[in-house]
Structures are given as structure tokens and as C-alpha cells.
């Protein structure tokens, strides 16, 4: 039986102030240790949450080969040259290989990436399995026509500086949800500096509320 229990057993609980002084001494050193332990534990958990957790949560994949957006924008002029609308107003997204072949029937430059593209995909007439950074979950409907034509928005507002990039960044996917990291954004708290930092429902709603005075009904963006 422990000391305390013994004491309680032998005296009524109400007058246990007898051992108060003793306990105070014991309590002080215990308190100091406790504080240090608390701070240490806090640091460990804080750091692992901050640094380790995102690493564990997302798995990284490389694109089939690097794509130089900046070079292509210089050559072609603007985004719409490759990412265009069909006549029914639907958006083509990433061009299929037929469009690329219009220029890249044979290798134009001498980069390794272009060589991979021409030898592995053009010559074999195979589509490139691009990993799409901004792919939304299956339940989401998004109209490029409404935003680009209807509301006159530019690509950058949502997609950021991708047109300036010279290499393809790794594609990171959330292991639990299976969604691209660009949906939640790089910041683990979900804090944004630019309008293109994340593409969550709240981000859509924020802009819709500002521009149309309404977050919209469910079916406006869900299917």
C-alpha cells in the first residue's frame, strides 16, 4: 500500500493537512520535472506535426517527363493556344498527343525530356499519362467557360504561375483522400497568400460570395 493510501486509511480524509509540508517539497521538484517534460513533449509533437506529418500524408510522384511551360508560352503566344474550348463550350484541359504532334512530329530541340516524349509517346502513338495537379474530386463540376468566357477571368487567378515554370514539379497526392496536394494547398493550415494557393470548396465560395453575392446552390458545383 502506498504512503498516501496508508495515511488516508489511518486518518479521516478531512484532516489530511498533516502531511501538507512534506508533500509541498515533493510537489515542487515534481512540478519542475513536469514542466520540462511538458515543454519537451510539446516541442516533439509540434515539430513532428509541422515537418513529419505533411511528409507522411502526401506521397510524391514524378511526371512522365518535364514540361517547359515558359518555352511553350513563348513559342505559342498564350495559354489558349493549347488549352482551348471545344465548340460546345467544354474545356479540353491538357491537350492530347494529336495536338502536340502538329509541331513535335520529330524532335525539335535537344533536351532529354523532348527525346523521351518523341521516342516513347509520339512514335508509339501513345497518350502521355500526365498527372493533373488541379484535378478536382469526382463529385465536382467545374465550368471553364463560365469563368474564362462568362466572367473574363485569367488562368493565373486559379492556376498561378504555372505558365512561367520551366520544369514540372513533383505531383503530390494525399494518401488518405487520393487528391492532389494543390487542392488543399501547400500550407498545412490552409492559409493562403495568393488566390491560386488552394482550390477547396471554401476557396470557390470565397470568390463566388465576393463576385456574385452568393456561395451558390450545391448543384452549381457538384454533380
Amino acid at each position: 500500500m502506498s504512503e498516501i493510501e496508508e495515511k488516508i486509511e489511518n486518518s479521516s480524509v478531512n484532516d489530511d493537512k498533516v502531511g501538507l509540508a512534506q508533500e509541498n517539497i515533493k510537489g515542487d521538484s515534481g512540478l519542475g520535472l513536469g514542466v520540462i517534460f511538458f515543454i519537451l513533449a510539446f516541442v516533439v509533437f509540434f515539430l513532428s506535426g509541422w515537418l513529419l506529418f505533411p511528409k507522411l500524408l502526401y506521397s510524391k510522384k514524378q511526371q512522365p517527363f518535364n514540361f517547359n511551360h515558359r518555352l511553350h508560352v513563348q513559342e505559342m503566344g498564350d495559354c489558349e493556344s493549347c488549352h482551348s474550348f471545344r465548340e460546345d463550350g467544354s474545356f479540353t484541359g491538357i491537350p492530347q498527343i494529336g495536338m502536340c504532334v502538329e509541331c513535335h512530329e520529330e524532335q525539335l530541340g535537344d533536351t532529354k525530356d523532348e527525346e523521351i516524349f518523341v521516342t516513347q509517346y509520339v512514335e508509339n502513338e501513345k497518350e502521355v499519362p500526365w498527372l493533373i495537379y488541379s484535378r478536382q474530386p469526382d463529385c465536382v463540376f467545374f465550368s471553364h467557360a463560365a469563368h474564362v468566357i462568362g466572367a473574363n477571368m485569367d488562368c493565373k487567378t486559379c492556376h498561378g504561375d504555372i505558365g512561367e515554370s520551366t520544369i514540372s514539379k513533383p505531383y503530390e497526392v494525399n494518401r488518405i483522400t487520393g487528391y492532389s496536394r494543390d487542392i488543399w494547398g501547400k500550407n498545412i493550415w490552409g492559409i493562403k497568400k495568393h488566390s491560386w494557393d488552394s482550390m477547396k470548396m471554401d476557396d470557390c465560395a470565397e470568390c463566388h460570395l465576393k463576385e456574385t453575392q452568393s456561395k451558390g446552390a450545391c448543384f452549381q458545383c457538384h454533380k
Binding site: E87, D88, G89, S90, A145, I149, F219, K223
Partner: peptide, 17 residues
């Protein structure tokens, strides 16, 4: 859903035109 996706598609065409 009253085929709401068809409404969306029709609106896309209208935007485009």
C-alpha cells in the same frame, strides 16, 4: 436531378457563344 448536368452543359455552350 432533372439531369442537371445537361443544364450545366447547355450553359457552357451559351457561355462559349
Amino acid at each position: 436531378s432533372f439531369c442537371f448536368h445537361r443544364y450545366q452543359a447547355a450553359k457552357d455552350t451559351a457561355y462559349f457563344e
